[in-house]
Nucleic acid binder design. Structure first.
Lengths: 336, 336
DNA sequence: GGGTGCGGCGAGAGCGCTCTCACCAGGGTG
DNA sequence: CACCCTGGTGAGAGCGCTCTCGCCGCACCC
């Protein structure tokens, strides 16, 4: 329909401003070492022609891309229906935008995709990668490390400790869990139960560890395994009530779990918080605020985690000594 | 730490295979017009050297990028905590991956970002754009159309009709709403209320229109304005009950709204579905299945919408006559 | 006044690829 | 036997940019 406007090149701008290509390039890239009147003339020419640098040409010589890949391994669809990830993505996007970087999103579906992602990353299309490693046995992080590009992980990767060149950003899952359980104990509760998350994820393991830090191994029957989903939470809660009808508090591994637990408790005629005090984890607003009663929970600043991941990556992973663990805060509402 | 492996070039592969650069290029790009033995030799050389084409160099000459931008205007943070978008993104990602395209995610925060996005798109970094235009007064779609790159919209854009060169993918919001309301009427309900979505979004307007298609303008007091959020749903439900205590059914603009309405109804001592039958919209699983009773709702295949958007864009927008509206289905659960 | 230094600018190479074009077989055709 | 295709291959230009290098003019100093 419309004639495609031929995009102006550096050459065109140079001609219009009456200078060389090199000078235009200098101005476009910050203008150091060019005298003011020339800078002005070039700026005007750029403006008038609507010049936009060709990123492909630029990358070809600089070998930089001003682009970062965000890799999300998604073995189960559950992960993606999770506002958690969306918020983190948002934080990442904000930071990248602020630094004039683009966000290339790589979602993987199953094992076959791993090779594809690894090839893409190794292919030098992006300057770095932000990786969400969700499961302990996920081969993806390893493949990516092999690709040899700067990488920051979201959440502590499973193979912990043995590789100290790994940079990650995580919440203080263990500390947050401790705070929650201590709060319950401070309320005078002594039979504090815990529904874990999916234990192939470090966040779930860390939260369980936090619980144990306070409760010790007192009564192992007070711990039931969940999987972060409402369905798993429901099952675990029933299990717990059958095993330990005398429990007087619950620390759930996340808000979704806590929310289903709340339903089971009501169904059994137990009052919250009078009979059983309940605390969740995440502070996912649509969930935590809408339960009845509203959920006391451990807040983690998810968006900030994302932002930090991006910042760490861009500031150059090499310089950074290690990882960042963000603090959590207990948010008191009605349930405990 | 490690010596950075110098990535092999076409030249290197050509040398190893004993052919010219041109021939290697041909093989890498499909191998048409090259005789079998040569193809084999080149393939082996590629394999041995671990050659990966340099996308920047390629784009420089082809002016293609094999990358598509996904633009999400996000005036409110609400949008992003929405699984809706995540699912669509997933569909898009699957389709793009299948076609060897990359997904560049552009999230906009407020007005200032619009110019940035427009510049990026006009800058020819991507081959096309998928745009989620959420609000009627959003200037972004206009700006993007100006950028002159192929575009497919997610959801019918606000400025409807007057531009028939606009391609979009949408659910049959109006038809789905009709089905829902008809179902309620079929249940013998006559006082069917409606809580709308945010009426600056076409999906909300279309669902309201669907409601009116069945109910006519009978009793305007049976319609209350919501905004797709739980808070708005709660307020609207109270309003409705105060105005029309005799209502016996509710069609809510989405599941989140329906879910809060359910809570208000219970709080007022009304039974669902005996006293008031309730239907939502979306079939967002974590929400719709976890309410009490489980929510009857209008399902839209969100992931398929995303996939279709990508397909439409890649298949060449020019050839396509127009837009696609996907059907919805009523999912019966306990609430109606 | 002639060297020396230095900062601003332009010339030109070259990043790794695609694509046009010319070349060169080899096999039909008149 | 000269001719023309036709299909496979290589040579080479050039995409738009950055960056090194060398030149030039202008102090500055001995």
């Amino acid at each position: 329909m419309t004639g495609i406007a031929p995009r102006p090149t550096l050459e065109a701008v140079a001609a219009r401003a009456g200078v060389s290509r090199a000078t235009v390039s200098r101005v476009v890239n910050g203008g150091d070492g060019v005298r003011e009147p020339l800078v002005e003339r070039v700026r005007r020419a750029v403006e008038e022609l609507g010049y936009v640098p060709n990123q492909a040409a630029r990358s070809l010589v600089t070998r930089r891309h001003d682009a970062v890949a965000v890799v999300v391994a998604e073995p189960e669809s559950r992960v993606f229906a999770d506002p958690f990830f969306a918020l983190q993505l948002r934080g990442i996007s904000k930071e990248l935008t602020a630094q004039d970087n683009q966000l290339v999103l790589l979602l993987t579906e199953g094992r076959d995709d791993h090779a594809r992602v690894a090839r893409y990353l190794a292919g030098g299309h992006v300057d770095g990668a932000l990786v969400f490693s969700l499961h302990l046995d996920d081969p993806l992080p390893g493949l990516i490390q092999q690709a040899g590009i700067p990488t920051v992980f979201g959440g502590r990767p499973g193979w912990n400790g043995d590789r100290n060149d790994v940079v990650y950003v995580d919440s203080d899952n263990r500390g947050g869990a401790r705070d929650a359980v201590r709060h319950l104990v401070g309320l005078g509760r002594s039979r504090v139960a815990h529904i874990t998350g999916a234990l192939d994820q470090t966040s779930a393991v860390d939260r369980l560890d936090g619980y144990r830090d306070v409760m010790g191994d007192a009564d192992p029957r007070l711990v039931a395994e969940g999987d972060f989903t409402p369905g798993g939470g429901e099952r675990a809660m029933r299990e717990l009530l059958d095993r330990c009808p005398d429990l007087d508090a619950l620390f759930a591994a996340n808000d979704l779990t806590a929310s289903s637990a709340l339903r089971v408790l009501r169904e059994r005629g137990l009052r919250v918080p009078e009979d059983v005090a309940v605390i969740g984890f995440d502070d996912m607003l649509p969930v935590a605020e809408q339960t009845d009663p509203a959920l006391t929970t451990v807040r983690q600043d998810i968006e900030e985690m994302g932002r930090l991941m991006a910042r760490l990556l861009l500031r150059g992973v090499e310089g950074e000594p290690g990882s960042v663990v963000l603090p959590t805060t207990l948010v008191r509402r009605g349930s405990a």
